[in-house]
Design a protein around this nucleic acid. Structure first.
Lengths: 254, 254
DNA sequence: GATACACCTTAACGCAACGTGAAGGTCAAT
DNA sequence: ATTGACCTTCACGTTGCGTTAAGGTGTATC
């Protein structure tokens, strides 16, 4: 059976341009060219294209595919194992990214303000590769995969109104917290109102509320500099104050 | 504090070219240009760069970042939620890829020969998105995440000699299997030898051997067309024959 | 035989986010 | 005056094609 570009393209589910490109980079050349200059592909080319697409589907780059399909002695299995390694690395990176995005979403719209040089330290490779890696695992160990995933699902399914509500609560929380902090007593009524607002805010993100998880998060506000920076933006010490208030709030609940 | 390109680049851990590019695409312009034409960045630019890098770290493309940092009213949180969706999709795709690569590695160097038009059907989107998706999950459900991951780890840590050994066993298996298939009886000594070779082969990939898992895999050889094609390459029916032999082999073991 | 329409060809720019020179000016120290 | 380390503005290269553009071919229809 012989095919023109389009025919083969249709058969294989790729574009004609793709086949021309494969010709251009010497990984799949037509069998012959007919009298009017048309590119004709034969059976051998069909087979070869199948191989190419197979590896492509696995995400192997064309340069590597070239090695695999042109040198018959080339160790395809070895290439695949190396490719697999790369994929796993990509996956780890992706997991880190997702964990970071999750965190940021949890901060809602916090801009985080650190000071000058330190600012960037947090975003250099080291942090991403070590600190964050550790933290990404930690957060999932602490609260469990499911809790994190459920939180994510809830955020994703949030409607626009929900989102406005939660933003409003967040605003109230900050105002109340600022007032309470100025007063200075985490056990005061106003501080307890802040803790309650924080719980309400939280319930928009968590499927199930528990005192322990609430306490854990409060402590994280103090431990994780990014959360700390967020709450301490107005006045340093606010994050710690909030944690104290929440601890008291939890103890006070029936 | 004021910085030249290099200074700022060093501070932020990016290249000077990157800063120039950001200037070029209008997401970060220097505060001013001094008498000899040097680009001078000020405090505001430092802050802005920090924001840009923050989102970049999360994998957001520069076009989106531009929207986020230039339009102050732009809904950054919403953008992040959308971005998160994309990341999750990417992750799913990656998982599929890895599952496929795993499968292919398990086939060692099987080329899989299907016939002509059907060849491609298997690699069109539909299969990847539906069939494979289902299967990727299925295989992990059946044997568990850990089993799959452990298998992967073992393959990755395999030395060159191990790999030669396993290839040799694979070859023996095929020869023995062909002979046994010709004889026709899955309970025969030669067929049982094939089943045993298959177990040996398997033990190079699995951390723990169990009859149940062995049986499950044997059945998969019949269910999954790709494995079937691999074993049926020499003679159709070989995959089924191997499964039968393995079933008997398992029952016979003390 | 003219015309339409679907196919074919080569050639070339465009995409993301920079890396990597090239060619030349500036600054501080020797 | 001469290094050497900065700075500047072009401008091409990367990957895997998508997408016109400009023009030739094949077949059916009027």
């Amino acid at each position: 059976m012989e095919y023109t570009v389009q025919k083969l393209a249709q058969l294989a589910g790729v574009s004609a341009r793709t086949l021309r490109y494969y010709d251009e980079i010497d990984i799949l050349k037509p069998a012959r060219i007919n009298s009017s200059g048309y590119q004709i592909y034969g059976q051998a080319e069909v087979d070869r294209l199948q191989q190419i697409l197979f590896y492509r589907e696995l995400g192997v780059d064309l340069e590597s595919i070239k090695n695999i399909v042109t040198a018959p002695s080339f160790d395809g299995a070895k290439a695949l194992r190396e490719h697999r390694k790369k994929l796993l690395e990509k996956k780890e990176q992706l997991d880190l990214l997702i964990a970071n995005v999750d965190k940021t979403i949890a901060l809602t719209e916090g801009r985080m303000n650190m000071s000058d040089k330190e600012k960037f330290e947090g975003f250099k490779k080291k942090m991403v590769e070590e600190n964050e890696k550790k933290y990404g695992k930690e957060i999932r160990e602490k609260y469990g995969e499911d809790a994190v995933n459920q939180s994510n699902a809830k955020v994703l399914n949030m409607s626009e109104e929900d989102f406005e509500k939660v933003t409003s609560i967040d605003k109230q929380l900050h105002e109340t917290l600022a007032e309470a902090f100025a007063a200075g007593d985490p056990a005061s009524d106003i501080a307890q109102k802040a803790a309650d607002l924080h719980k309400q805010w939280l319930c928009y993100y968590w499927k199930e509320y528990s005192k322990e998880a609430h306490a854990g998060l409060a402590q994280m506000y103090v431990d994780d500099e990014r959360f700390t920076a967020y709450y301490d933006k107005a006045k340093p010490g606010t994050a710690e104050f909030l944690r104290d208030a929440i601890y008291i709030y939890i103890g006070m609940q029936k």
